[in-house]
């Protein structure tokens, strides 16, 4: 105990004036000039069906007004036993800062692989979802600048979509759009997937108006929705375009489809 010290930060007698440390910066601290983040644009989307989940993303990679690449996938199969991921059961989409997205994907994939080797079975989406949240939160003070969406089938075989913010807050949802055009796509999804603002005509006035009954969409309907959502986003957002990558997760595995989007 430094009983004579008046200095709260120093555990000992006070320094004479000339001996006072001149820096308040802790050891090893660097002056901050380098911005470690950038936004690489792009958009993602996931919709859960009754017995399937569709994950989608465009394949454009931008920096500023430049298109770096016209084919840079944002949706990945996670936790297969080999590097080609042929037996993966979960898909992850990342959008935001591409380098962080890549690092996040590789970490989650490594963790899911380890789980699979140790337990002899793939990780459930629920467990994987919680684990992803933990990974993100562990970097709370130097976050992965990536908006992640995790998709798979839950224990009952129903489609499951989990969406995240960069620091690990997450929830299970029916559908979610992420990235540059999220604010353009999400309202469209609210209306088309969750039938928001859709009422039965003539069912009443004001609060008596009855909402249209919600029913799960077929795979064909969802694929069309995804395509329409991206065609719309491409039209209105410069960072979205080039290619559309879709992963369709069913009990038979993950099917990957790519199709062209406008390249302008």
């Amino acid at each position: 105990m430094a009983m004579f010290s008046q200095n709260p930060t120093m555990n000992g007698p006070n320094y004479s004036f000339s001996d006072t440390p001149r820096t308040k910066a802790p050891e090893g601290a660097r002056e901050h000039r380098f911005d470690p983040y950038t936004d690489n644009g792009g958009s993602t989307l996931a919709i859960a069906g009754a017995d399937f989940t569709i994950m989608a993303g465009d394949t454009r990679l931008t920096s500023g007004y430049n298109i770096n690449s016209r084919y840079h996938p944002k949706v990945f199969k996670i936790g297969g036993t080999t590097s080609d991921q042929h037996d993966a059961t979960i898909a992850l989409s990342v959008v935001g800062f591409a380098a962080d997205g890549e690092a996040l994907k590789e970490r989650l994939d490594a963790i899911c692989k380890m789980y699979r080797y140790r337990h002899g079975k793939p990780m459930s989406v629920k467990a994987c979802a919680q684990r992803l949240s933990t990974i993100l939160y562990q970097k709370r003070f130097f976050p992965y600048y990536a908006y992640a969406i995790l998709g798979g089938l839950d224990e009952e075989g129903k489609g499951a979509v989990y969406s995240y913010d960069p620091v690990g807050s997450y929830e299970r949802e029916q559908c979610r759009a992420g990235g540059a055009a999220a604010s353009l796509i999400m309202p469209f999804l609210d209306n088309q997937v969750n039938f928001k603002n859709q009422y039965i005509p003539g069912s009443g006035e004001g609060h008596a108006l009855q909402e249209r009954e919600r029913k799960p969409l077929s795979r064909q309907e969802v694929e069309t929705l995804v395509k329409d959502a991206f065609d719309g986003a491409v039209e209105r957002h410069i960072e979205v375009g080039d290619g559309l990558q879709m992963m369709i997760i069913t009990k038979d595995g993950i099917q990957e489809v790519t199709m062209p989007l406008k390249k302008d």
Binding site: N40, N66, Y71, H72, F97, A98, E102
Partner: peptide, 21 residues
């Protein structure tokens, strides 16, 4: 291509700096 932040991508043609434009 790889840059100072670790951002990495491939493409049939690539250019850095002014060359990108």
């Amino acid at each position: 291509s790889v840059d100072l932040r670790g951002t990495s991508f491939t493409s049939p043609s690539l250019a850095t700096g002014f060359g990108a434009m």
